[in-house]
Design a protein around this nucleic acid. Sequence first.
DNA 1: TCTTACCGACAGACAGTCGGTCTATAACAA
DNA 2: TTGTTATAGACCGACTGTCTGTCGGTAAGA
Lengths: 215, 215
Amino acid sequence: MRIVKEAEERRNEILDAADQLFGQKGFDGTSTNDILEKVGIARGTLYYHFKSKEDIMDALIERYNVRLLGAAQEVAADKSIPVYERIMRVVMALNISGEGSQEVMDHIHKPQNALMHQKIQKVIVRGVPPILGEIIREGIEEGLFHTPYPFEVMEMVVIYLNTIFDQDMIEMTEEGRLSRLQAFAFNIERLLGVESGSLLHLMQMFDGGNGEHHE
Amino acid sequence: MRIVKEAEERRNEILDAADQLFGQKGFDGTSTNDILEKVGIARGTLYYHFKSKEDIMDALIERYNVRLLGAAQEVAADKSIPVYERIMRVVMALNISGEGSQEVMDHIHKPQNALMHQKIQKVIVRGVPPILGEIIREGIEEGLFHTPYPFEVMEMVVIYLNTIFDQDMIEMTEEGRLSRLQAFAFNIERLLGVESGSLLHLMQMFDGGNGEHHE
DNA sequence: TCTTACCGACAGACAGTCGGTCTATAACAA
DNA sequence: TTGTTATAGACCGACTGTCTGTCGGTAAGA
């Protein structure tokens, strides 16, 4: 029953298994035994490819990081797309993010996965504001926005959204969610120096597909 | 060698020991053995007073929570203090926070303590915006600020500051720190609807005692 | 005498290690 | 071409030490 594979193939098998298991049961809740049973390998093999359990998590985050920011960066660089639309598309790329990582985002936000959550948060907080900030900067040149601090505004916005829509950072009623969205739209308009109401059409994107306005 | 004490006294001894140890070595890095050796009790005693290791952490956070928010709330409720000064005093209460918990804040921001960090973050994000928001609301009545969303603005500000000044969320040069402070002052002025520059004297508080302006 | 606090041996689970084994391929000989 | 041997990379699983949480029992004070 000894099956030999290329190191990279094995590594990916292990990462795929870990991805699912961490998602289902959290990092602490998943034992290395769970992982190696799922892959169908022995203990030694796991530690041949990864130096520790946390090393597996780091590799997972790196993979996720590349996919997520890569997709966003690609969209952001396409200057043929108008600024407003490009912002939306970048945000969508960050929310949905291609192939197999949809689940990741769903599962990170569990108390069990605190460390993983923190590490991903770090990736997002470091990676996203430069991407969005640059688009805003273009928007400023075009006269769409008016702020001397596009990068810092995006930093604030990204951090806020990332924290506030964390499943259990704040338990929100549907009403609380909507009022926060309204406030958010208003605040970001002030931060970007645009007329009040300009971003209404942008905000509808975040409205959970529920098209109501509640102005 | 059997020493009997009131349950609450023992509980506090255990919490004090855990506080120091978690600070030094992190939650995961601290074993229950470390704690019970430091206190000088047996395993069973520890588990007589707390139902799990995580329960100890929760109690620690609760104690911290009470001290921190309690102090802030007390200051916030004193309507004899002018609004601007009261805001500063509340923020100071949150940063320094009384007796023995100075260390806590210093040690939370370590990758080891991800879960603890997350839980404290939650306490702050839930607890502080209502306190500050209420003061801002008073300021609005007095005509100092102009925003329809005082609570949400404070929520955004608290989350931002809490994340950005996390030791290793973003590695910042001294220059990056100052430029961020400038941007922050500018942005919060827009959010609160005050004249640009109004908050300069407030911001000097956060300037690490370094009195330079860099306008 | 009864409750409350305390004890420490123990079970079960887990992460990581280590010596050793298999196998594909390369290098070389016949 | 065919057969043989050498080598390195992939793999194995028993084992170690450590850790958390449990449980039956014990001392002390009211």
